[in-house]
Design a protein around this nucleic acid. Sequence first.
DNA 1: TGGGTGACCATAG
DNA 2: ACTATGGCCACCC
Length: 111
Amino acid sequence: MSKEPDFFEKVYEVVKLIPKGRVTSYGAIAKFLGAAKSSRLVGYAMNGSHSLKEAIPAHRVVNRNGLLTGKMHFPTATTMQELLEKEGVVIVDDQIQTFPKFYWDPTLELL
DNA sequence: TGGGTGACCATAG
DNA sequence: ACTATGGCCACCC
């Protein structure tokens, strides 16, 4: 009898709302969902995104440091970087350059 | 049913 | 300045 969408579904919803060429952090999404303390859940949610039939732009989600921590979970260690670079994001050594410039905060844009 | 897990974040030493 | 540890809470087995 679940009436409300699962936490994961909310995360996917926000991730899919991320504009192209922008990136956000797990903690930002968690905070937007009102669970800043559960920032880990956001990352864990992406882990289940593989089961979804819809493509989740998980490559647009990085950690607080702007580091591609989740790249290891992609098909290849360079997939995440390739996708981001293709969108115009500059990445060096798996780290996003001028991170605040590409940073997209849902609590500021959506809210 | 219960416990383990995790793509994090924040604080302390 | 860097390294280490704790907390946190929804989902899976």
